[in-house]
Amino acid sequence: MRADGLLAMLDRWGRNALPGAALLFFVLLTLAPLRAPYLSGALPLLPALVVFQFSLATPERLPGPLLLVMGILLDLLLGGPGAPVGVSALGFVLIRAAVVNNRRYLVGVPFLFQWSGFCLLALGFVVLIWLFTALWTWTAIDPRPAIMQYAVVIALYPLLAPLLARVRARDPLNVPDESRGTARPGETTS
């Protein structure tokens, strides 16, 4: 049992809070006026990417109720009048559940597999939101912008995922072998 110093405590807190903070950041970024023609259109899907990426590694730090709150916040901030509030929350929760239940196909596999997994889940997410928004407002919404969003976020995944994987907090046990050093237990340096 290691000593619980202040730094260790802060470290643990930080690690636990990181996925949620990253998600909150991307939820707020959704509204940022970036003015990049295709990118800003795809911003609303980035929180879904964050949920997917962190659910792969540390789903326990992104608990369902937090996803619910974040999804509702996203819908409140983004939604126009009449749009359903909570549909993003539903999507987030389902993405997390899908990732957690299919860990063995998604974790520790070649990147291409993860990417195709994300493609599938993001497609489900986009279809879900489109369907609910169309049903809720009872209008035939042009699906082309949604498809465009989907294409952009799929293309962004290979760029963002490694970045998030770096940001993702490393547990001591997750430290790659080469950086652990060669010291054996009980051995002291020189």
């Binding site: 983004l78 126009g80 949604a146």
Partner: peptide
Amino acid sequence: IVGDSVSAYVR
């Protein structure tokens, strides 16, 4: 203008 709420469903 401090924020865009532009998505596939809102302008």
